[in-house]
Computed example of a mutant assay.
Amino acid sequence: MKQYNILFLCTHNSARSIIGEALSSTHPSGKFVGYSAGSSPGTSVNPIAADLAKEMGYDSAKLKSKSWDVYGLPDAPKMDFIITVCDQAAGEQCPYWPGQPVTAHWGFPDQSQVQGTDLEKKAAFVSVMNGLEKRINILAAMPLDKLDSMSLKEIHTKA
């Protein structure tokens, strides 16, 4: 079975995009290899996002904030799908992506900005995780070899 590379982009690459990377890489369909990056990556992954990724069985050694520039290099993996998950990254000038990947914006609020108890903060992360999981499930059920950007954007309205 062909696996599809999917890159999740968010400004700081510390929470939403990390969760997207982990969800797609551990998806039961086995159809995806997830990656994540940011336009202005932070220095670390949010601890709640890291805990959720580990609970999914994702390799904690892969949990790093990184610049989206690394995926524009000649030796970088070729992306099939690129999905922005924050409104700020969606509006930024992205680098050139080799191979003309299908792109979409699946915006989610920044759960790392939620104030409150640890339980309230984790609930915000789980809410974003559930939203991403729903969209990834829809994506996995589609005929991936026939998808275009318009189809991928429609997943946002269905989820």
Rank of each mutant, 00 (worst) to 15 (best):
K2M: 15
L7G: 02
T11E: 03
H12G: 06
S17R: 03
I19L: 11
G20H: 06
E21N: 10
E21H: 10
S24D: 13
S25D: 06
T26I: 09
H27I: 08
K31F: 13
F32T: 10
A37C: 11
S40Q: 10
P41E: 07
S44K: 15
V45P: 05
A49Y: 08
A50D: 14
A53L: 08
D59H: 14
S60H: 09
A61C: 14
S65W: 00
K66A: 06
K66W: 09
S67V: 08
V70A: 06
Y71S: 08
G72N: 12
K78M: 09
K78T: 09
M79E: 01
I82E: 00
I82P: 00
V85D: 01
C86I: 05
D87P: 08
Q88L: 10
A89S: 06
G91V: 06
P95T: 06
Y96E: 04
W97T: 08
W97I: 03
Q100M: 00
P101V: 01
G107I: 05
P109Q: 00
K121H: 02
V126Y: 05
M129L: 15
N130A: 12
E133S: 13
R135A: 04
R135P: 07
N137M: 11
A141W: 03
L147W: 10
L147C: 10
D148P: 10
S149K: 02
